[in-house]
């Protein structure tokens, strides 16, 4: 039954996003599977990621929305909070754990009231404003802090690549 509920809620969200698209991203299904979404995130204006067209996958558990989806960038992307396999590591995609080491503020963790939209709004804001306190890509975090020009070049490359791939 948990399955019926999660798939119903996901269907409703998808329909809603089709009817009233939200600025900054578009969404669709992978192989018609309601638990696997492909989203395209438009690099936020006035940031290094501007005009990028980044593909990412969202994979929802059957227990959604009680448990969060996993998000993975499929386009190459260079960012302190995205690991080298493309996995997005931000607090709202993590469940509140008992463990207080390491991660970001627990107040921003996964809650059942979150939606695809609230997740993507957080991800877009993460692109604009990296959090280097708990980096998933340590090298990128270091570069962002210490060699901003190099970081900028590297991100610029990803942006162009994402555009080229998108046209293909």
């Amino acid at each position: 039954m948990a399955q019926d509920q999660s798939s119903l809620l996901l269907k409703k969200q998808l329909n809603e996003l089709m009817k009233n698209p939200v600025e900054g991203f578009s969404a669709g299904l992978i192989d018609d599977d309601i638990y696997r979404w492909e989203v395209v995130i438009i690099g936020p204006p006035d940031t290094l990621f501007e005009e990028g067209l980044f593909k990412a996958h969202l994979v929802f558990p059957k227990e959604y929305p009680l448990r969060p989806p996993k998000m993975t960038f499929k386009s190459e992307i260079w960012h302190p909070n995205i690991d080298k396999d493309g996995n997005v590591c931000i607090s709202i995609l993590h469940e509140p754990g008992e463990d207080k080491f390491g991660y970001e503020k627990a107040s921003e963790r996964w809650l059942p009231v979150h939606t695809v939209e609230t997740i993507l709004v957080s991800v877009i804001s993460m692109l604009a404003d990296p959090n280097d306190e708990s980096p998933a890509n340590v090298e990128a975090a270091k570069m962002w802090r210490e060699h901003p020009d190099e970081f900028k070049r590297k991100v610029g490359k990803c942006v162009r690549k994402s555009q080229e791939e998108f046209v293909d």
């Binding site: 809620l9 409703k12 969200q13 809603e16 929305p65 059942p112 009231v113 979150h114 939606t115 939209e117 609230t118």
Partner: peptide, 10 residues
């Protein structure tokens, strides 16, 4: 400020 969408669901 809670999202109406998920509130409706629950």
């Amino acid at each position: 400020g809670y999202p109406q969408f998920t509130l409706d669901d629950f």
